[in-house]
Amino acid sequence: MSATQLRRRPSRGVPATLVALIVLAVSVLATTAAVTRLASSDWPSWATGPARAVAQQSWGATPVIAAAVVGVVLGVVLLLAALVPGRRSGVPVDLSVTNAEVSEVVITQRGVARLAAAAADEVDGVESVDVSVSTRLVRVEVVTASRSDVESVRSAVQASVEDRLDVLGSGPVCEVRTRVRSRES
């Protein structure tokens, strides 16, 4: 199994949509101008006016420099969006798969939260469970009706969740913090 953490690449939907819309708009305008030129043997005025204004600018003009800076910043942002890996999306599971040359089994953070919630829910005295998972921490919040056994419920939930998550690998997936509140009677 590889020593590197599994990282997913986020969909990058917003940058991809923006680039696609800009390319589509430029393509529609260029096609419309070309068809108009072929049909009437003259470029449309909406295309020649801006083209003339751009042609009259010098390289050192403020609008040209501003457009260049905006283009460079936008290009760097889109390049970083494509190259920088996203946040960790799964926890590696120490499981060997037969009939596989190279395999890596992972469980999502949502799956870890569900496993932790199921383990906590099985403990006697637990009425409700709320679990949140980050890359390094599993937070388990439990509500119990018992006021006197809060510490014993907390230790039982802590042990149950840690035992359940230890099954995923050779050691703890991440730190488990448990908090127990007693329900007001």
Rank of each mutant, 00 (worst) to 15 (best):
V112D: 02
A117C: 13
A159E: 12
P92K: 11
L168Q: 01
E122H: 10
E175V: 07
V142M: 04
V173S: 00
L168P: 00
V131F: 01
P92E: 12
A119I: 03
E122L: 09
V140N: 03
V157N: 01
L137N: 15
L168G: 00
E104Y: 11
S152E: 11
V173C: 03
E151Q: 10
E141C: 11
T98R: 15
S132G: 07
L115I: 09
V133S: 03
T135G: 10
L165C: 00
V143L: 14
P172K: 02
V102Q: 14
V140R: 02
S89E: 15
N99Y: 12
G111T: 04
A118Q: 10
N99L: 12
R136D: 11
T98C: 15
A118R: 09
V143W: 12
V153E: 01
L137K: 14
L165H: 00
S132I: 06
E101R: 12
S152L: 13
L165R: 01
Q158G: 09
D94M: 15
G171I: 06
N99C: 12
G171Y: 06
E175C: 07
V123D: 00
S134I: 03
L168A: 01
V129S: 09
L168F: 04
R136L: 10
G90V: 14
R114I: 14
E175G: 07
E127Y: 13
S128R: 08
E162A: 13
V112A: 00
A113F: 04
R110N: 13
V142K: 00
E122K: 10
I107W: 05
